[in-house]
C-alpha cells in the first residue's frame, strides 16, 4: 500500500462495524451447519491464530518425526525393510509439506514457520523427543505412535477449515501403510528368537506411556479444547480419543503376544471400555517444556539441515532467475524484431 488506504479509514466508518457483525454471523452459520470455512472467507482473528498454531505444530511434528526412525534406514536388516522405512520417512516429509501448505492459506509463510520452530517458539509433538533405541522401535512407532496419530487424525478430516481437512484426508490414506508395516515388523520379530521377543516387549514398555500422552493433557487440564470444539476445529476431546486408542490397542497387543506396562489395565463391563492408568503428566509437561531425552538434539538437527540447505535454495532461485532472463525475448539481441516479439508476448 502506497497511500493512506481506504481500508484504514473504513474501520472508522459507521457501516464497517455492521458489516463485521454480518461477517461474524455468516461465519457462525457456516460452523453451525458443519460446513467448511475456506481461506478467503472472513474468519475471527482468534480462529485464524489458533489454526495457524495447531496446523504448524502438526506440520512440525511430521518433519521432526522423520528423525527417530531415520536413524535406522542405514541399519535396516534387509533391503525390503530398508525400502519400506525409506518410503515411510519420505511420507512423513510429504505430510509436513501438505500441512505447511494449509498454514500458508491462512497467511503464514513457510520460512517464518520453520524459523519459529528452530527458535523453539512453536512446538511439535512430544513423542518425537523420545529416542528410537532398538530396531524393534521402528515397529512400535509404526504400530502405536502412528496408530495414535490415526485416532487423532481421522476426526480431523472433518475439521471446519477446508484446507486442513483436505490435507488430513490425504495423510490418513497414507498413514494406514505406516501402521501396518510396523505391526507386521513386530509380528515377524515375535516369530523369531526369545531375544527378539524381549526386544519387542521392551520397546512396547517404553513407548506405551508416551503414546498415551500424544492425545494431550486430560480434558480438565486442556483449556483450549472447549473453544476449538465450538469452532469445529476439534470434534472429540483428548480423553475420548485416548480411550478409543486404548480400546483399539489391547486386542492388537494380545494378538501380537505382548503386554502393556499397566497393571490397572482391564475391561470394564459396565462402561464398555478398558480402564487404564493415566500416564505421568508431570513427565509430559517436562518434555513439552524442553526437558525430554532428545529435545535439544532434534532441534539442533533441524537447524543444521535448514542451514546446510540454504545454499541449495539460493542456488536454485538464482538459476531460475538466470534461465528466465536468458529465455526472455530480445535478451541478448537488439534486433528491431525484439520489441515486436515482446509486445506479442505481453499480448498473450
Amino acid at each position: 500500500m502506497t497511500t493512506e488506504t481506504p481500508e484504514a479509514q473504513l474501520g472508522q466508518e459507521p457501516g464497517a462495524q455492521q458489516r463485521e457483525a454480518e461477517f461474524e454471523a455468516q461465519f457462525r452459520r457456516t460452523i453451525e451447519a458443519k460446513d467448511r470455512i475456506e481461506p478467503r472467507d472472513w474468519m475471527p482473528e482468534a480462529y485464524r491464530k489458533t489454526l495457524i498454531r495447531q496446523v504448524a505444530q502438526h506440520a512440525h511434528s511430521e518433519i521432526i518425526g522423520m528423525q527417530p526412525e531415520g536413524n535406522w534406514i542405514s541399519r535396516a536388516p534387509s533391503l525390503r525393510r530398508k525400502a519400506i522405512l525409506l518410503a515411510k520417512v519420505q511420507d512423513e516429509a510429504g505430510h509436513g509439506l501438505y500441512l505447511y501448505s494449509a498454514t500458508e492459506t491462512l497467511g503464514a509463510t513457510r520460512n517464518e514457520l520453520t524459523e519459529k520452530l528452530i527458535a523453539g517458539r512453536q512446538k511439535y509433538s512430544s513423542i518425537f523427543n523420545y529416542p528410537a533405541l532398538s530396531y524393534a522401535d521402528v515397529g512400535t512407532i509404526g504400530w502405536l505412535v502412528d496408530g495414535a496419530a490415526i485416532v487423532n487424525q481421522v476426526p480431523l478430516c472433518r475439521t471446519s477449515f477446508g484446507p486442513y481437512g483436505r490435507a488430513m484426508i490425504r495423510i490418513c490414506k497414507e498413514e494406514s501403510f505406516h501402521q501396518r508395516q510396523g505391526y507386521e515388523l513386530l509380528m515377524t520379530m515375535m516369530r523369531g528368537t526369545d531375544e527378539q521377543r524381549e526386544m519387542v516387549q521392551e520397546s512396547v514398555n517404553r513407548f506405551w506411556w508416551p503414546a498415551l500422552m500424544m492425545f494431550g493433557p486430560p480434558d480438565d487440564d486442556s483449556p483450549n479444547t472447549a473453544q476449538s470444539m465450538a469452532w469445529g476445529i476439534k470434534t472429540h476431546t483428548n480423553d475420548e480419543l485416548r480411550q478409543k486408542f486404548v480400546d483399539m490397542s489391547v486386542p492388537q497387543a494380545e494378538a501380537l503376544g505382548v503386554t502393556f506396562p499397566d497393571e490397572g489395565l482391564q475391561w470394564n463391563e459396565e462402561r464398555g471400555h478398558y480402564d487404564f492408568t493415566q500416564p505421568d503428566w508431570s513427565e509430559f509437561w517436562a518434555v513439552v517444556k524442553g526437558n525430554g531425552p532428545c529435545n535439544v538434539q532434534r532441534l539442533a538437527h533441524r537447524k543444521k539441515a535448514w542451514d546446510d540447505g540454504a545454499w541449495v535454495r539460493e542456488a536454485a532461485m538464482a538459476f531460475a532467475e538466470k534461465s528466465a532472463e536468458a529465455a526472455a525475448p530480445g535478451a541478448d539481441t537488439d534486433s528491431p524484431d525484439s520489441g515486436a516479439a515482446r509486445a506479442e508476448e505481453v499480448a498473450r
Binding site: 475456506e38 478467503r40 501448505s101 500458508e104 492459506t105 497467511g107 484446507p163
Partner: peptide, 9 residues
C-alpha cells in the same frame, strides 16, 4: 492448498 493468491504467492 493455497486458494489465496496472497502476498506469499
Amino acid at each position: 492448498m493455497s486458494e489465496t493468491p496472497n502476498e506469499t504467492g
